[in-house]
């Protein structure tokens, strides 16, 4: 059972790292700012949440801390995505 849980947590880590790499790679490209923002906010939030779930499976006794991190990640990262998109709109002088 323990080995199964460890294997599942490794799967979550792999998903998280893949999400991170997939979302951060467009940052180096030559795309528009909103495209980069979209892929970054999606992949950062989902990838980080996946890594956190993997950590939660490993150490369930510290769940309040990790669940707090999960919730704040979900709320603040999406809010930050909206704020950055709102602020980076070009306005005429």
């Amino acid at each position: 059972m323990e080995q199964l849980i460890e294997g599942v947590s490794y799967v979550f880590f792999a998903i998280g790292v893949l999400f991170w790499l997939w979302g951060t790679a467009p940052l180096l490209g030559d795309r528009s700012i909103l495209f980069k923002l979209h892929s970054l906010s999606v992949s950062d939030t989902l990838g980080s949440m996946s890594i956190m779930i993997g950590l939660l499976l490993r150490i369930p006794r510290e769940w309040p801390l990790l669940v707090l991190a999960l919730i704040s990640l979900a709320i603040w990262n999406t809010t930050l995505g909206y704020v950055l998109a709102f602020c980076s709109r070009r306005k005429p002088l």
Binding site: W20, T24, L27, I33, K36, L37, L40, D44, S48, I51, M52, L55, R58, I59, L66, A69, L73, N77, L80, L84, C87, S88
Partner: peptide, 26 residues
């Protein structure tokens, strides 16, 4: 390039460092 691209990189870096700290703490 653009200041907003630097801001995006900063935002992404802030999330990534805190997750890295959490992984190391576990």
């Amino acid at each position: 390039e653009d200041i907003w691209k630097t801001m995006l990189a900063f935002a992404s870096l802030a999330t990534k460092t805190s997750i890295l700290i959490l992984v190391v703490s576990v």
